[in-house]
Design a protein around this nucleic acid. Structure first.
Length: 426
RNA sequence: GGUCCCAUCGUCUAGAGGCCUAGGACACCACCCUCUCAAGGUGGCGACACGGGUUCGAAUCCCGUUGGGACUGCCA
């Protein structure tokens, strides 16, 4: 079992990518000897800077996942050039001088393929200054996919695709196939958008004598509320994994939620620990329809995971947002869904608050009464509660109403932590 | 335009011809618990896109329609 994940370091790590690594990681960790390779597509120096590559590593690590080997597409140019030369030598590829404009100009409205018309196929052009195109053979190409089943492509509908630029550099498809053969990849799990490219991939694979094809699984896309593949342009930071780290989502909750987008552990179960998901995961159980990324459900999952934490774990997790004592932490824990909500609950413990909401009736009486009562009452949970209750009774109020003005005065908000936590104040 | 993919509650899903009066989860609503807010508990609302077949029987198989999506670069 050798699987690989190929992110393109474009400045942020996509939640769709996160799901892909997760599934690849499940596969690699299922059996001993499994290998997950991080294949970094970094050929564009402008866009794929070193900091972006680091960002990918950080994101995967944050998720709690790891990988066994790593390499970069940019460092393997020679391999690709050799493969390209071989393809040309074997007659499986030919050089082409056509520009995009020329191709478009020749295109007719009813053409079966929206692309290239094989104009240079038999012109015997030399390598110099020309791009190398793959000579697509006649026939059909069958893709066996774990989630789509058998998908058949008529080769007449596949254009002679470019595999090497005029400057000698390889295109993604060539690099990809060469690498997968060389790395002896056995499973390719990636987004549905790659499904149409799988036919060319197989054609190249065969031409290069790759042997047994990998097992394919094309994951359905993750969509937004308009049912379109989520994208940074349209959906902003909704797609950016780092945003969820910053907002205080737990990686465990994120993994769990992501795993459920297109897969189910069965038996009506949803909250399942990572190591158990590894055991349960099967490519055959993947669902083929697109899934909406529902932040509300993610939040709910996150709340569950937060509540499942031990007090010490919770305090540690809150570190970047607030310092919690062991006394307040449990009270806070059941009241937040994301860690960034923590400060809003405990800010009054550290600094004086400002009251912006209108005071309830009887506030003056309650406040005065309690100020006096607090002087003498035992300064603990029960003491405070009894004191407020007593003063409330004197004013004809039940505890529910009686505590309101006190809460407002102390916390600055009409709701929040139990009023008795004020006993923790010095 | 061409090729390909997809279609169960609002959302994520279970469902491999009878176990389906279609199950679970999130969201929503109600009630209980309760010092507010949560958490927790109980209950409720709510779906097989449509039309034809096949079959004793279809959410499940086939065909068509409609709707959605992806791909269609000398990007990765």
């Amino acid at each position: 079992m050798r699987t690989r994940f190929s992110p393109s370091p474009t400045g942020y790590f996509h939640v769709g990518g996160a799901r892909s690594v997760l599934y690849n990681w499940f596969l690699a960790r299922q059996a001993p000897g499994g290998v997950l390779i991080l294949r970094i597509e970094d050929t564009d120096r402008e866009r794929h800077g070193e900091e972006h590559v680091d960002g990918i590593r950080r994101a995967i690590t944050w998720l709690g996942l790891d990988w066994d080997e790593e390499y970069r597409q940019s460092e393997r140019a020679e391999l690709y050039a050799t493969a390209a030369a071989r393809l040309f030598g074997d007659g499986n590829a030919y050089y082409c001088s056509c520009t995009r404009e020329e191709i478009d100009a020749r295109k007719k409205p009813g053409d079966p393929q929206g692309g290239y018309d094989r104009f240079c196929r038999d012109r015997g052009l030399p390598p110099e200054g020309n791009a190398l195109r793959f000579r697509v053979p006649p026939g059909k190409t069958v893709v066996e996919d774990k989630v789509r089943g058998v998908v058949e492509f008529d080769n007449d509908n596949i254009q002679d695709f470019v595999i090497q630029r005029a400057d000698g550099s390889a295109l993604f498809i060539l690099a990809n196939v060469v690498d997968d053969i060389e790395m002896r990849i056995t499973h390719v799990v990636r987004g549905e958008e790659h499904l149409p490219n799988t036919a060319p991939y197989e054609l190249l694979w065969a031409a290069l004598g790759g042997g047994t094809l990998p097992v394919f699984a094309h994951l359905s896309v993750i969509v937004d509320d308009k049912r379109r593949k989520i994208s940074k342009r349209r959906d902003g930071d909704l797609v950016v994994l780092e945003r969820y780290a910053l907002e205080g989502y737990l990686p465990s909750a994120m993994c769990n939620y992501l795993a459920l987008l297109g897969w189910s552990p069965g038996e009506n179960r949803e909250i399942v620990p990572l190591d158990e998901m590894v055991q349960l995961f099967r490519l055959d159980d993947l669902n083929s329809s697109s899934a909406f990324f529902d932040v509300k459900k993610l939040r709910a999952f996150n709340g569950e995971y937060i509540r499942a934490l031990s007090v010490d774990e919770f305090i540690a997790a809150c570190e970047p947002w607030a310092n919690l004592s062991r006394e307040v932490a449990p009270e806070v824990q059941t009241r937040v869904e994301v860690l960034s909500d923590v400060p809003g609950l405990v800010d009054w413990l550290a600094a004086p608050v400002e009251v912006t909401t209108p005071w309830p009736d009887n506030s003056a009486a309650m406040l005065e009464g309690c100020t006096a009562a607090f002087e003498t009452c035992p300064w603990d949970h029960d003491g405070v509660k009894d004191a407020i209750e007593a003063v409330g009774q004197a004013n004809g109020l039940k505890l529910g109403k009686a505590q309101a003005p006190i809460r407002l005065a102390v916390m600055g908000k009409p709701q929040g932590l139990p009023i008795t936590t004020i006993a923790l104040l010095p």
